[in-house]
């Protein structure tokens, strides 16, 4: 049977249901366990093989040698596409995906993040993995 206003029952029911949407900046839905968010780098694990640099599709990561067996990474979040190929390519698990997804900044220069064993040079010490 054809009749107009077929959705009326469902629509009235949802008047008494909890809204499906959230008031976003105040309430957030949780990220899944293996979310591919911001990439962080553990300098102590890096062996400087440059595999991540080679495989990055958007050339967002740079690994520099600071001292013998000490490396620092510069990740450009403006370029990063969060594919986590670098995490997969790394033989020593020195790179890791986090659940961090709110990465917008007002200052473009803050998108370049340096992870270094030297805490003075590291620009991302306040963020937790």
């Amino acid at each position: 049977m054809i009749r107009p206003g077929k959705m009326i029952k469902q629509v009235l029911q949802s008047l008494f249901m909890k809204p499906a949407t959230l008031l976003y900046p105040f309430k957030k839905s949780p990220m899944p366990e293996h979310f591919r968010g911001e990439i962080i780098f553990h300098p102590e694990l890096c062996i400087g093989c440059q595999m991540c640099v080679r495989d990055c599709p958007s050339r967002a990561i740079k690994i520099k040698k600071t001292e013998d067996n000490k490396f620092e990474a510069e990740i450009d979040l403006g370029k990063c596409i969060y594919c986590a190929q670098c995490v997969m390519s790394c033989p020593k698990k020195a790179l890791e995906s986090t659940k961090e997804f709110e990465l917008a900044v007002l200052d473009k220069s803050k998108l370049k993040i340096i992870f270094s064993a030297d805490p003075k040079k590291s620009s991302d010490s306040q963020k937790t993995p």
Binding site: V11, S14, P19, T21
Partner: peptide
């Protein structure tokens, strides 16, 4: 309108 559509409004 929003509540009928199960939104916050």
């Amino acid at each position: 309108y929003a509540r009928l559509q199960n939104r916050m409004g």
